[in-house]
Design a binder for these strands. Structure first.
Length: 270
DNA sequence: CAGTATGTCACGAGCGTCTG
DNA sequence: CAGACGCTCGTGACATACTG
């Protein structure tokens, strides 16, 4: 999947002259706006590393694993703990100066404050993306030029999901048939609840699922790619040459490649 | 309390106009 | 013609109120 080819190196974002902690320094910036750098990094963390995350718990547990539990042998950690620790390390890596600041912070409150700012960033980025995509995605439900029947209001979500013929067919798990009225009815009432290991059909290229080859076309659908571009390059880059005057998210955060979590994030937003 | 809806703001590239 | 200037527009971020 292509990302912005002209992404500049990281130092465009972090102050090139400042020390490692520069990006984390609080207090007034050029213009006194209340945008803490940690919130900024939290936004990118949520989009590319771990979206639905309790940052406070993540940081606390991470500190414990790096501190008092650092002598314990590998096997004492559960698979879940290993996974959580990988996320924690990715977080430290993606926020310049964070590791030093966390490890040297003296009080519980200070760590709590850091986590809260990161959490705020991740949450508000998710909310901003949801809001922005809510309207944009309507244009991607059917091929350009075709009418959407029945039409969907751009500012409402009540008539979407399984309630709508088109969105319902896209959300329908790949291994069941949306055209089956019984299936459709049960999905709508909730009698048939979709489990986490059932991929919706909108993730597949051309919305075609091959029973014999479940990987075929997975995560290659037009709607997923459009959503990814909407979030990471810019809304205007989705179906034309980006003519935006402001940098998109990928550039702002020095993102040069797609991550697994970022694909999952885009899919979740769809 | 977390998520959502809606409006507002700062930023910065593009572009036309003015000035010398 | 170069450079200054100011306006527009697309964008990401933020503030506030609302909702269940």
């Amino acid at each position: 999947m292509p990302t912005d080819e002209n992404v500049p190196p990281m130092d465009v974002v972090a102050s090139p002259l400042g020390g490692p902690n520069d990006a984390l320094r609080l207090g007034p910036r050029k213009k006194p706006r209340s945008m803490d750098p940690l919130v900024h990094h939290g936004r990118h963390f949520g989009r590319t590393i771990h979206a639905l995350c309790n940052v406070h718990a993540l940081v606390n547990n991470g500190i414990i694993r790096m501190g008092e539990r650092s002598e314990e042998p590998e096997e004492t950690f559960t698979a879940q703990e290993h996974r959580e620790h990988r996320v924690f390390l990715s977080l430290l890596k993606s926020v310049p100066g964070l590791e030093e600041r966390i490890m040297t912070s003296s009080s519980e409150e200070e760590v709590h404050g850091i986590a809260a700012l990161l959490q705020k960033g991740a949450s508000s980025a998710r909310s901003d993306d949801t809001k922005s995509l809510k309207s944009a995605i309507i244009d991607w439900l059917v091929p350009a030029g075709e009418p959407l029947i029945p039409p969907i209001a751009r500012n409402s979500k009540i008539e979407r999901g399984f309630n709508h013929e088109i969105t319902g067919s896209l959300l329908c798990p790949a291994d069941v048939d949306w055209k089956d009225d019984d299936v459709k009815q049960k999905l709508r009432t909730g009698e048939y609840s979709v489990s986490g290991d059932q991929w919706p059909i909108f993730l597949y290229a051309s919305y075609k699922y091959d029973d014999a080859d479940p990987w075929k076309g997975l995560l290659q659908s037009a709607i997923l790619v459009k959503t990814f571009k909407h979030i990471f390059t810019s809304p205007s880059s989705v179906d034309r040459e980006a003519k935006a005057t402001r940098s998109g998210n990928a550039r702002i955060h020095g993102m040069t490649n797609v991550t697994r979590a970022s694909i999952a994030y885009a899919a979740t937003q769809v």
